[in-house]
Computed example of a mutant assay.
Amino acid sequence: MTTQTGPSQDVSEQLLEAFKALANPVRLQLLQWLRDPEAHFPVHEGIADPHEVGVCVSHIQAKTGLAQSTVSAYMASLQRAGLVRSTRIGKWTHYRRDEERIAQLVDLLGRAL
C-alpha cells in the first residue's frame, strides 16, 4: 500500500478527523442539537445569542446528563474536527456549529468519494 502525500492526503485527514468526531453517537447528537439551539436548550437562560456565540457548556451538560469534563472533551473533539467554534464569555465557554466549515467538509466528501 502506498502512502499519500500532498493535497489529497490533507483532504483525507480532514475528512477522517470529522468522521472520528461524528462516530460517537453523543457527539453526533450534540452537533444535531446545535443546529437549532432554541429547540433544544434553555436559551432564555443564556447570556448571549446562541447563534452568534453558542450554547453554554453548562446547558449542554444539563441536557446530556454527562459530567462537565466529558462534555468538554466531546466539544473539544468536535472543535478539532472543525465542526464547532467556541467563544469564552467570562468563565463560561459557549459552542456553536461552524456552518461554513461543515459545508466545506460536505463538499470535500462529495469530491473525494
Score class of each variant (00 low, 15 high):
residue 79 Q to N: 12
residue 69 S to E: 13
residue 12 S to Y: 11
residue 73 A to M: 06
residue 19 F to Y: 14
residue 81 A to Y: 01
residue 80 R to W: 05
residue 92 W to P: 05
residue 99 E to K: 12
residue 22 L to S: 04
residue 24 N to M: 08
residue 16 L to N: 15
residue 42 P to Q: 09
residue 39 A to M: 06
residue 42 P to A: 08
residue 17 E to M: 10
residue 50 P to K: 01
residue 51 H to I: 09
residue 15 L to Q: 01
residue 99 E to W: 10
residue 80 R to Y: 05
residue 38 E to S: 11
residue 36 D to R: 11
residue 73 A to L: 10
residue 57 V to E: 07
residue 57 V to L: 12
residue 68 Q to K: 15
residue 38 E to T: 09
residue 28 L to H: 11
residue 42 P to V: 07
residue 48 A to W: 00
residue 75 M to R: 00
residue 83 L to W: 02
residue 84 V to Y: 01
residue 71 V to Y: 01
residue 48 A to Q: 00
residue 49 D to L: 10
residue 76 A to D: 06
residue 70 T to V: 05
residue 16 L to H: 14
residue 92 W to G: 06
residue 47 I to W: 13
residue 45 E to Y: 08
residue 17 E to Q: 12
residue 63 K to Y: 08
residue 68 Q to S: 15
residue 76 A to R: 04
residue 75 M to D: 01
residue 17 E to A: 14
residue 96 R to I: 03
residue 17 E to R: 14
residue 55 V to Y: 00
residue 15 L to H: 05
residue 26 V to T: 11
residue 33 W to V: 05
residue 17 E to P: 07
residue 52 E to F: 06
residue 79 Q to R: 13
residue 55 V to M: 03
residue 56 C to D: 09
residue 55 V to D: 02
residue 14 Q to H: 14
residue 64 T to P: 03
residue 42 P to E: 06
residue 72 S to L: 07
residue 84 V to S: 00
residue 42 P to L: 05
residue 29 Q to S: 10
residue 85 R to Y: 10
residue 91 K to F: 12
residue 47 I to G: 15
residue 81 A to T: 04
residue 21 A to D: 01
residue 47 I to H: 15
residue 76 A to G: 13
residue 85 R to L: 13
residue 15 L to Y: 04
residue 58 S to Q: 11
residue 67 A to F: 09
residue 31 L to S: 03
residue 51 H to Y: 14
residue 75 M to Q: 04
residue 56 C to S: 13
residue 89 I to A: 10
residue 61 Q to P: 10
residue 21 A to H: 00
residue 57 V to S: 11
residue 94 H to E: 07
residue 16 L to A: 15
residue 56 C to V: 11
residue 96 R to T: 02
residue 68 Q to R: 15
residue 81 A to C: 07
residue 25 P to Q: 04
residue 74 Y to T: 05
residue 99 E to V: 10
residue 29 Q to N: 10
residue 28 L to S: 11
residue 33 W to I: 06
residue 28 L to R: 09
residue 56 C to I: 08
residue 46 G to M: 06
residue 55 V to F: 01
residue 26 V to E: 08
residue 35 R to H: 14
residue 52 E to C: 08
residue 26 V to P: 03
residue 73 A to P: 07
residue 77 S to W: 02
residue 24 N to A: 14
residue 20 K to D: 15
residue 45 E to M: 10
residue 59 H to D: 12
residue 47 I to S: 15
residue 17 E to W: 09
residue 31 L to G: 04
residue 13 E to V: 12
residue 20 K to H: 15
residue 66 L to W: 06
residue 48 A to F: 00
residue 66 L to C: 11
residue 23 A to F: 07
residue 34 L to E: 00
residue 58 S to K: 13
residue 90 G to Y: 04
residue 97 R to M: 03
residue 15 L to G: 02
residue 28 L to P: 04
residue 40 H to K: 07
residue 86 S to A: 11
residue 50 P to V: 01
residue 61 Q to E: 12
residue 39 A to L: 11
residue 53 V to K: 06
residue 26 V to R: 11
residue 84 V to I: 05
